[in-house]
Nucleic acid binder design. Structure first.
Length: 342
DNA sequence: GAGGGGATTCCCCTGTCGGA
DNA sequence: TCCGACAGGGGAATCCCCTC
């Protein structure tokens, strides 16, 4: 694809001084192509220089091409250099590759989880099979089968709604509402907590993601759609992100994603910092005005808990079980957000 | 008015071509 | 072989139209 030189004259070449200046720009901007304004001013400056003596006009497009080519050449060089990195130019594609990657060291995750933050739990009610936030563990008992049970007070409900639930099967770490930027960590096959709206009630049920339709985000936030199948009735529904709460086990994906973005933005150091500082913002369950659900801000502390290894994802029984002995005494969870049915 | 869906535009990345 | 130019593809942002 040979291109005739612009203007039809001799082949265009940047002078050494021009190359030096553009390289300096590239370095200053951390290998990011300068904006249009700077490119135009560079082109004008080069055109007016003594070396060009006004005879050759340097087009902004040519300057831009130079930046493109130089950056690509530099990255190609880095990739070929052995043992130099794991920072490849394909960084922007990595979110897709998050799938099936190994999780970060468990120790790093566990460190954050108990770092002065109180863990929050949710429990499955035997009455309707839906999951509710746990406000308090009232008591506990042990069955002959060896399965411990706890008496839980659901957040937003009174004593009359207290329920004995199986710790292994019906208590787990609280699911996390998704922010718009977190839709990428919701993948087909994932176990999620999904807000199902019925005619008379709207509750959170376990569901599995069958398919994820990615859409462009805009000022309104995430517009992706997720085809989910509810575990309790096998019904399928296409839901927006706001109805999806991801399991804490997917936290590692978010951290990988953040680390990847940091790689793109600057350096491996920044990436490491981002990975270690992944601090979820204050989250809320999706608010559904039409349904009679009461939603309050959830404590970000619970969101701090990183999920376990990928193997645990999708297996609610494999999740950490609260120490009921301990929680029985001080298991008070700050007024959390409870999703109140009907 | 809010939200959903699609079209358009811009930018970036990757790869290739031809001249020097 | 190096360097500049550009094609093709994909992602992101924005805008417009439609429906409820």
């Amino acid at each position: 694809m040979g291109r005739p030189p612009l203007g039809g004259g001799p082949v265009f070449r940047f002078t050494p001084s021009e190359v030096m200046e553009m390289e300096a720009c590239l370095q200053v901007s951390n290998n990011v192509i300068p904006d249009r304004g700077l490119i135009s001013s560079l082109a004008e400056k080069f055109s007016a220089s003594a070396e060009r003596s006004g005879k050759v006009v340097v087009q902004p497009k040519q300057v831009w091409n130079w930046f493109q080519n130089r950056r690509y050449a530099q990255r190609a060089k880095v990739v070929k250099a052995p043992g130099k990195l794991n920072v490849t130019p394909a960084a922007r594609d990595e979110p897709i590759q998050i799938r099936n990657v190994a999780s970060p060291a468990p120790s790093a995750q566990a460190k954050n989880s108990l770092d002065g933050n109180q863990m929050e739990f949710e429990a499955k009610s035997a009455r309707d099979g839906a999951w509710y936030d746990v406000a308090q563990f009232i008591s506990h008992r042990m069955f002959e089968t060896g399965d411990p049970e706890v008496l839980v007070r659901f957040s937003g409900f009174g004593i009359e709604e207290d329920e004995w639930v199986n710790v292994r099967k019906c208590v787990r770490q609280r699911s996390l509402p998704c922010e718009a930027s977190e839709c990428v960590v919701v993948l087909p096959g994932d176990l999620i907590l999904c807000f199902q709206e019925g005619k008379e009630q709207a509750l959170y049920f376990d569901a599995h993601v069958l398919d994820a339709q990615r859409r462009r985000h805009d000022a309104r936030g995430c517009r992706c759609r997720f085809l989910v199948r509810y575990d309790h009735d096998q019904s399928e529904e296409i839901v927006p992100l706001r109805k999806v709460c991801r399991r804490p086990e997917t936290e590692y994906r978010l951290r990988i994603l953040q680390a990847t973005k940091a790689h793109q933005a600057s350096s491996p150091e920044a990436a490491a910092a981002a990975a270690s500082q992944a601090q979820p913002q204050k989250l809320q369950r999706p608010t559904e005005a039409d349904s009679a659900e009461a939603t309050a801000p959830r404590d970000a502390a619970a969101a701090e808990e990183a999920g376990g290894p990928p193997a645990a994802a999708g297996d609610s029984n494999a999740e950490p079980v609260p120490d009921v002995e301990h929680l029985g005494g001080s298991g008070e969870i700050p007024p959390a957000a409870k999703t109140v049915a009907e």
